[in-house]
Amino acid sequence: MNKKKVLVLGTGFAGQGHAKAFIDAGAEIVGIVGRTASVVSEVAEKMGIPYSGTDWQAALDACKPDVVSIATPGGAHYEPVLQALNAGCHVFCDKPLATNGDEAKEMMELAEKKGLKTAFASSFRFMPEIIHARRLIQQGKIGEPREVELISHFNLDKNIPFGWSHTIDAGGGRLNNNFTHLLSIVTYTIGESILAISGDIRKDLARAPKVAGVHNFTERRNFIPEDLNDPNLEWGESDVEWSYTVMAKVKADTYPAEKPVSVLFKHGGLVPRFNEDHIVFHGSEGSIYIKGHYGAGPLYIWADTNEWQELPLPQDISDSLPDIKDDTQRSWTYLAKLLINDLSGVADEPYQSFKDGYRYQRMIDIVRDSDNWVDTSAL
């Protein structure tokens, strides 16, 4: 049977999700590592994983995995990934790849030097209607691609307990954890060559309450203190962006275009939406509209009839994806299968690697460091 052996770093929502993804991909989970002994032991027992611990290097030595799956926040990727690569392991890593471009470059170059496979999980490019949109663009249904708009408003609670998402050093910020997915969607549907980028960020959350006991990212709202005016409550300072506006120029490869495609990414993490979050592709002959911030659907097309028409998802696309309802889990599983197939010598479609993770991290650095404003106050 020769199943690939996988060691997982992380025990929360992502860690358990990665483990399920690799099981569904036909691999064997040989161990799981987390920061809290009682939690990692409980998760390992629940999932039937034979090895659990809190020491990553010890786990690499004991389990001797073929693949490691990194499912921790971005600030906890750099050292474990270098350790895994030096141990000769292929790496599946969630986004963001690192906290800055320099770290990401070092990770990419070490993987290339060692000749190891890497997978970068900005994986919402595998949403069903995103795959559908790519096909329609390839078929020329909207003519030459010209513009893409990606608009989302999350209305996140400002009092979510202070944690990794609040700081740069921990890999937080909306660029690291939202923009990476959206950029991946654009490159998948339009073309992988990002020619230019510019943007602005807004750090519109000053602080958040410090609360113990949050182990699962998806349950953090349950830990918001009842009395936010309690004088004994500790607060942490947030130093990351919670909203951003980014513009990019992308070379159209999926369907050729004479000029670069203009892309607008607009995300408000703390503000409410009025209408649907959406992704729109405009071309010379028509447009495609997908409801949902990551393209959950349904999908509509504006073409010959000069009105919006809903298009059902083609059955062959549905059949090609894992039969999993949860969008995040299905996308992880799809990517895990691509990596396992590649390692097993089975031909399949291309997938994103650390090269993409590095490029994305450099672009995030550029946007965060941008100072493109021209003072017009004296005009």
Results as ranks from 00 to 15, higher is better:
341 N>K: 14
327 D>N: 11
340 I>N: 05
324 I>L: 05
241 E>Y: 07
217 F>Y: 10
361 Q>R: 12
206 A>R: 15
31 G>H: 01
288 I>S: 04
8 V>L: 04
78 Y>G: 00
33 V>D: 02
248 A>H: 05
7 L>K: 01
190 I>Q: 12
335 L>W: 11
360 Y>L: 12
202 R>C: 11
185 I>M: 15
335 L>A: 10
250 V>L: 01
376 T>P: 09
244 Y>S: 13
95 K>Y: 08
334 Y>H: 13
248 A>M: 12
356 D>T: 14
183 L>M: 15
9 L>I: 04
142 I>C: 02
30 V>A: 06
367 V>N: 03
346 V>M: 09
221 R>T: 09
330 R>P: 10
229 N>I: 08
87 A>R: 03
231 P>T: 07
155 N>H: 13
133 A>K: 04
107 M>L: 15
20 K>P: 08
291 K>E: 13
131 I>L: 11
98 A>C: 06
162 F>C: 01
362 R>S: 06
114 K>N: 05
5 K>R: 14
55 D>G: 03
136 L>K: 12
193 S>H: 10
270 L>Y: 01
317 I>K: 05
295 G>W: 09
145 P>A: 01
140 G>P: 01
76 A>N: 06
311 L>K: 03
44 A>G: 14
322 P>Y: 00
299 L>C: 02
16 Q>I: 07
114 K>M: 07
87 A>C: 03
300 Y>I: 08
279 I>K: 11
103 E>N: 09
258 E>H: 14
14 A>I: 12
43 V>D: 04
144 E>V: 05
211 V>Q: 02
137 I>L: 08
260 P>G: 02
10 G>P: 00
117 K>E: 15
170 A>V: 05
42 E>N: 12
193 S>V: 11
239 D>S: 03
12 G>V: 00
154 F>E: 12
143 G>M: 03
62 A>R: 09
124 F>K: 10
208 A>M: 02
89 C>I: 02
378 A>C: 11
63 C>M: 07
204 D>F: 05
138 Q>T: 10
205 L>N: 15
29 I>C: 10
182 L>G: 04
5 K>N: 11
183 L>V: 14
